[in-house]
Write a protein that binds this DNA or RNA. Structure first.
Lengths: 197, 197
DNA sequence: ATCGTTCAATCATCACTTTGTTGGATTATG
DNA sequence: CATAATCCAACAAAGTGATGATTGAACGAT
């Protein structure tokens, strides 16, 4: 019985953190982050404001911490991939994690969510895949590679955002296939004719 | 001589608006919008705070107004297009507008910029092109069309963001070609095999 | 178990800044 | 000159950080 990472955080501490977290997420359903004050979050959470500052710098900091939990989970999945493109299998697993956390995802990626976050997630690929790209695409110049990465990232972001927006109509499996097809076709544009500035 | 929209704004009014606008943009170079207060904007602009509230609700409102100027300009270009894809020619003209306004664009799309804005711009296509898509793609279901639109939007966003981030290395012409190639190839994925949920 | 003891976690209160709003004085424009 | 635009200053209300005091969970001794 020794989940090493799990620290022996006080029941108090865990409750406080959870209360603040839930309060923020609840309020994000009604208002954008910039309209949500530390005071209001603490009121709803029934936690003293000074306690809030003990853990977080401001509401943005709190939001970041919440996001990071999802991020870490996705990181573990993606971090091991070394392909040119995220394969349909990896995509499916990523989408499954998002689906499982869909209550959180709706808020994080939703109308009032942080648009930067998804980009950060997609960037996990970058370093993993960079040298693999070079191998396949030959001596393509840096600028082309950069646009390739951008293309992969944003196709992913767009698909996922719409998926969430339309309330997860497709299965992770179906969405993975769709994304992969988009990526394959887009990338072929690079392979056949590099940017050649 | 009757530019109907142009109202007969006072020289004073125009100056006040400009001062506030420049002040905000200046501060956005150093801090995100949520750290910028009305008070500070007015100080730097040397405009009384009550005057600020005469024109804008808060800093977010001011930012929105600034963005809308760029938006209107792009709107005029894009609003007349009816093709399945934004053609290389239209893309070039759009990129040229962005290039001309690159000082503003850097801030709007930059590190502390509003990520929603670009999406809004890209959405101008949507309504224009929707029925054209149906014509070309046959009786494709709504979901597939939605993803098609998302794909077009985000490819565009990604390319432009990177373009700005890397300080406008390519010419609008070159960038238009690149984007068009990406879009063409991606869309072909839809044409050949619709989503078929 | 029950009791202290200890120390982290939480709270109550402070001084300060920002926010909207208002009424009236001042200034610039047409 | 008339008046629209701006400034001034004063206000209550709200939000912010930081302080030192208070509480309660964990633990060893009884």
């Amino acid at each position: 019985m020794e989940r090493s990472v799990q620290k022996k955080e006080n029941r108090r501490v865990r409750y406080t953190r959870l209360a603040l977290r839930e309060s923020l997420l609840a309020q994000l359903q009604k208002a954008p982050l910039n309209k949500i004050t530390v005071t209001k979050v603490c009121e709803m959470a029934d936690v003293n404001r000074s306690t809030f500052y003990l853990y977080y710098k401001d509401v943005y900091d709190l939001m970041e911490k919440i996001e990071n939990e999802l991020y870490e989970e996705l990181m573990e999945l993606i971090g091991t991939s070394h392909a040119v493109l995220p394969g349909p299998d990896l995509l499916r697993r990523v989408y499954e994690v998002i689906y499982i956390n869909r209550d959180l995802a709706r808020v994080v990626f939703g109308k009032f969510g942080d648009k930067e976050f998804m980009k950060k997630v997609s960037n996990i690929y970058r370093d993993q895949a960079l040298h693999e790209w070079k191998r396949v695409l030959g001596n393509t110049d840096e600028a082309t590679l950069a646009y390739l990465h951008t293309f992969i990232t944003y196709t992913n972001i767009g698909v996922v955002e719409r998926w969430i927006l339309t309330d997860f109509q497709e299965t992770p499996e179906q969405l993975a296939k769709l994304t992969y097809r988009l990526l394959q076709n887009g990338v072929s544009a690079f392979i056949n004719k590099p940017l050649g500035r």
